[in-house]
Design a protein around this nucleic acid. Structure first.
Lengths: 190, 190
DNA sequence: GTCTATAGGCAGATAGAC
DNA sequence: GTCTATCTGCCTATAGAC
């Protein structure tokens, strides 16, 4: 897939707009203006807005899979893997954006089922991966934590998603750094 | 304010719709259908959609203030106060809804400044109250926690907001119970 | 306070030329 | 693949009768 293909540009533009304004607040007109074509041309690539949304979330899930694989390869310790994961969110925070899933979750009831499914998949995959790393860390003695890894994973992911919301409401700052610190205190405290 | 006044009914309907579908996905037509009047009549109570949004968030902040005051009066220990606060969120979770602020945060860039301000106020007020309770709990020896109360407060609120999103994406369940458990483990572990 | 009627604009989407 | 032209429907909002 060439990165300059129109379809890719459209997905990029849509992702930014959704993360900034929400699914129901962006239009083909916005996309057309950004990419530099007419609205009718967008329908050639994505017949309906739902099609675009589904394609976007599919790409988002694939990107996640790639990012997690990259972290697993590059990094050694479970703790630094978790930190790399959190970094994905701090980068989003710095952009003043929120997660695509978090944004779509608000509009959930207006979304097609296939899109709802992709959102759930993204979050589940993240959660499982986190739980895995926590479990590994405990096993190898890197992390001292007595609770269920799955519980800590769900809590961490929640606080990252919610942290992006709070951070944006505050108008900036680095709330996620705090979230990370508190998270590791939890893991090491037990 | 009589609870059956049309304005109140409109706010109630709008709040439900926003929590279910997002700010940009509900219309005066939806409200009209719910309340049983015509769209034009809504403009008598709330000239513009922004006016409605602002009034709604103002009421939401007032409700919060009332709820926090009620908790402070009724309950004794800091820990049970915090549990009562979390219960506000578990009730939202049970309804399959997310926080009004969380929902509006996605559409933030499309909202009038006064509305953005109200969102920030709601979250700030929550955060401060939580931090206060944690500080009290530590002072009275109820909670063992060495970090900054403000940090734990920001993290808890983040995980509650995010937890509502994850919970909805999962299609139900009681994720917030898990979040609560992990939170108190953190506070008592240190 | 609520109604009917209507305005003006934008939404997503389609047909067919190039 | 992108265009122009056009459709239909919904949106917020207003005017004015009751």
């Amino acid at each position: 897939m060439k990165t300059n293909e129109t379809a890719t540009q459209l997905l990029d533009a849509a992702q930014s707009l959704i993360q900034e304004r929400g699914y129901n607040a962006f239009s083909y007109k916005d996309l057309a203006a950004t990419v530099g074509i007419r609205t009718a041309s967008i329908h050639y690539h994505f017949p309906s807005k739902s099609d675009l949304g589904v394609a976007l979330m599919e790409r988002y899930v694939q990107d996640l899979t790639g990012a997690l694989a990259a972290i697993d390869q590059k990094t050694r310790s479970s703790k630094s893997k978790l930190k790399s994961f959190i970094k994905l969110y701090t980068e989003t925070e710095r952009r003043g954006a929120i997660c695509l899933c978090g944004s779509l979750a608000s509009d959930r009831e207006t979304l097609p089922p296939s899109l709802q499914k992709a959102i759930a998949q993204y979050l589940q995959q993240s959660e499982r991966w986190i739980a895995e790393k926590i479990q590994e860390g405990v096993k190898h003695g890197e992390l001292g934590f007595r609770g269920k890894p799955a519980d800590a994973a769900a809590t961490l992911l929640s606080s990252l998603q919610g942290g992006l919301i709070l951070s944006r409401a505050r108008g900036g700052g680095s709330l996620l750094t705090t979230v990370q610190r508190v998270f590791f205190e939890t893991l090491e405290a037990a």
